[in-house]
Amino acid sequence: MKGYQVLAHKVVFNYNDAFEIFKNKATTYGALNRLEKQNLIKKVRNNLYVTINPSTGYAFATKYQIGSSVNKDTFISHISALEYYGYQNQVSYVCYVSSSSRFNTFEYEGIIYKHVSIKSHKGIISPSYTELIKITDVEKTVVDSIQTIGSIISLEELIYSLEIIPKLNEKKIIEYLEDYNIQALYQKTGYLLTLFNETLMLSEFFFESIKKRIHKGVVYISDDAKQDGIFIKTYQVVVPKWLAERG
């Protein structure tokens, strides 16, 4: 059908994208209705569509492409970004999406798309060899995830990711920590990254920079640390016994 090939190349599109093809309001709505009835496109939510592969009956778009297209500045973040990079061992049925403008949670094809507020929009990239995906870089993802331990990501899930991340750019980590400017986040980040520094190979200067931002005040790294927690003096953080025993 006329216009379908162009839309199929877009993978995810909205009304304005379709209007550019069909050039007329009535023609555009008519074409969208016909394509949807023929199962060549599907409506994901208001003003967001995906094109369907006729041979499979499924959308060409991935959940990361859909999440990145909810509105003009949405991007994949937190544990969903870790999953995209291959740093999670389970596929989640929730896709966490951040943007400056909030949207209501919605579901499409078994995936729930949830908005997450985020303080800074630094560190957003478009990965090479992909289309339509906007996502936080690894360093921003790590900092955001540490900030949301217990709400979006569990401590165990984050530990799994930190075990397999091969490297981190310490200048970026410091930059993103400065954006948050929260002492508790410095404490948690310093402690957690120390545990994995044999592989991350962050400098002593990096850890000293973090320590300089820590003054009086003890923080619990997670809720279970309140039950059998062990105090780590260097970062004034209380951590679960199982984590402290790692070293």
Rank of each mutant, 00 (worst) to 15 (best):
residue 2 K to S: 10
residue 103 F to L: 06
residue 242 W to R: 13
residue 84 Y to W: 13
residue 61 A to N: 07
residue 32 L to F: 04
residue 67 G to P: 04
residue 190 G to S: 11
residue 122 K to E: 14
residue 225 A to D: 10
residue 172 K to A: 06
residue 218 V to E: 02
residue 79 I to Y: 02
residue 50 V to G: 00
residue 195 L to Q: 08
residue 91 V to I: 14
residue 108 Y to E: 10
residue 29 Y to M: 09
residue 126 S to E: 15
residue 243 L to K: 06
residue 134 K to G: 06
residue 99 S to A: 15
residue 149 I to P: 08
residue 79 I to A: 00
residue 86 G to H: 03
residue 109 E to N: 04
residue 107 E to P: 01
residue 130 T to C: 05
residue 43 K to P: 03
residue 146 I to E: 07
residue 37 K to C: 10
residue 239 V to F: 01
residue 88 Q to A: 02
residue 73 D to N: 14
residue 236 Q to H: 14
residue 34 R to D: 09
residue 58 Y to C: 07
residue 147 Q to Y: 15
residue 213 R to N: 11
residue 76 I to W: 01
residue 50 V to A: 09
residue 152 I to K: 01
residue 214 I to F: 06
residue 118 I to W: 05
residue 146 I to S: 03
residue 76 I to K: 00
residue 175 E to W: 05
residue 180 Y to K: 10
residue 125 I to F: 07
residue 184 A to L: 07
residue 57 G to Q: 12
residue 137 D to G: 01
residue 130 T to Y: 04
residue 126 S to D: 05
residue 31 A to S: 11
residue 28 T to V: 03
residue 9 H to D: 13
residue 140 K to A: 03
residue 51 T to A: 15
residue 216 K to S: 13
residue 168 L to I: 11
residue 211 K to V: 08
residue 219 V to W: 07
residue 213 R to E: 07
residue 58 Y to W: 02
residue 70 V to F: 03
residue 15 Y to H: 03
residue 162 L to C: 02
residue 206 F to N: 12
residue 104 N to H: 12
residue 25 K to N: 12
residue 186 Y to Q: 08
residue 111 I to V: 15
residue 100 S to T: 15
residue 7 L to T: 11
residue 159 I to N: 13
residue 121 H to G: 09
residue 176 Y to N: 08
residue 111 I to R: 06
residue 31 A to Q: 14
residue 147 Q to M: 11
residue 205 F to M: 10
residue 141 T to N: 10
residue 130 T to M: 07
residue 68 S to P: 01
residue 3 G to P: 07
residue 131 E to A: 13
residue 78 H to T: 04
residue 160 Y to M: 04
residue 57 G to A: 08
residue 175 E to P: 02
residue 236 Q to V: 06
residue 223 D to F: 02
residue 34 R to E: 08
residue 170 E to D: 09
residue 56 T to F: 01
residue 93 Y to G: 09
residue 13 F to K: 02
residue 101 S to T: 15
residue 164 I to F: 00
residue 43 K to N: 02
residue 44 V to P: 08
residue 225 A to I: 10
residue 126 S to T: 15
residue 12 V to A: 07
residue 207 F to D: 01
